[in-house]
Write a protein that binds this DNA or RNA. Structure first.
Lengths: 196, 196
DNA sequence: ACCTGAACACCGTTCAAGT
DNA sequence: ACCTGAACACCGTTCAAGT
């Protein structure tokens, strides 16, 4: 299906995928700010109007990128999660995986969170966050977590992990400092900052 | 040194301030995405090149906006902080004030965090965050917080508050839900999610 | 000193026309 | 079906010229 090397076929073949791949590498190298449809088209070797055939507009391409990101993150977390583990090691493993993703895909993660108004992306986001919800629910059932409204209990881990990922994306926290602090953070989350 | 208001009787008297004011209201009404220097100039009734006299480029205007935001937030937190209070009420009051700011200035706060690479804004940010550091340090001295590296102890409250503000800006958390949950969040922060 | 108007090099998006 | 090229309405930034 791929054309002869050096030839420039009129039809690209898989322009959509090529655009997404180019977009993700630009995102990683130069940040979301310097993502332009026209430049993407140039990189891929196609006219500036061609992307319009596959993405309604720039937003749609961004949404597709975010969607794929949520899918990848969700799968990663699912793979890592071990429901048989006690609460603290289970949550620590998930937190490590999440922050690992944040370190490796800082710009993408930022974009993923920014696409929260896209219904499809929101769904994947909810699914990823839902994993956390499940961990809390399981732990509560086992008496490893205080009783109370699950939504209220999910909030702290949710915002803490989100915040930490954002600190990484934003350069307020180095990847090294982040990975060095995850375990302690999870511990504080569960045990509190007050003396017991 | 910025010029005294009124000392320059031309058009708006102080184009710089007028541009910043227009920018902040556009930010509030239409979001950061639709902030254009040319439109700002139009709103203020000046040529599209005029803003260039007061801001080196668009980034500089954004930085100035963020800087003012950090200043306002810092002052608010300083006003609210009462070092005489025990840890939990003290931290709760600060958290409420911070989230109140996040609710009232969602787009601005997003921009404030995005400007973290501007040295001046970073300084104001550090100052605002430093308030939190002080609270933890004071509490540790009084034995209200477990011993340990202050940086490690600051991290959880820092990322949690940041994350919550981001949830508000991003619409993942309604202002009502946020204000209803602050106190509980702070409580969980201090007491942990595990049964004691 | 402060501002304008024109100019330049970009954008995203649309659409008739080509393949 | 897929892509091109031209066109349109925007940008940010610069700079000679005006007042």
């Amino acid at each position: 299906m791929s054309p002869m090397p050096g030839s420039r076929p009129y039809h690209h073949g898989d322009l959509r995928a090529a655009l997404l791949a180019a977009a993700e590498s630009t995102l990683r190298e130069k940040g979301a700010g310097s993502l332009s449809l026209r430049e993407l088209a140039r990189e891929v070797g196609v006219s500036h109007a061609a992307p319009g055939r596959h993405f309604k507009d720039k937003q749609a391409l961004l949404n597709a990128l975010a969607l794929a990101g949520w899918e990848r993150l969700g799968q990663t977390l699912e793979t890592v999660d071990d429901p048989a583990l006690p609460l603290e090691p289970r949550l620590t493993a998930l937190a490590r995986a999440y922050l690992g993703f944040a370190v490796d895909n800082a710009e993408l993660l930022e974009l993923m969170y920014a696409r929260k108004h896209d219904p499809e992306a929101s769904e994947r986001m909810a699914a990823a966050v839902g994993g956390l919800t499940q961990v809390i629910a399981d732990a509560q059932e086992r008496g490893e977590i205080i009783p109370g409204d699950p939504e209220e209990l999910d909030l702290l881990p949710g915002v803490a992990l989100y915040g930490m990922a954002a600190f990484i994306s934003g350069g307020m926290l180095s990847p090294e400092a982040a990975t060095a602090s995850v375990d302690t953070l999870v511990h504080h989350l569960l045990h509190g900052l007050r003396p017991r």
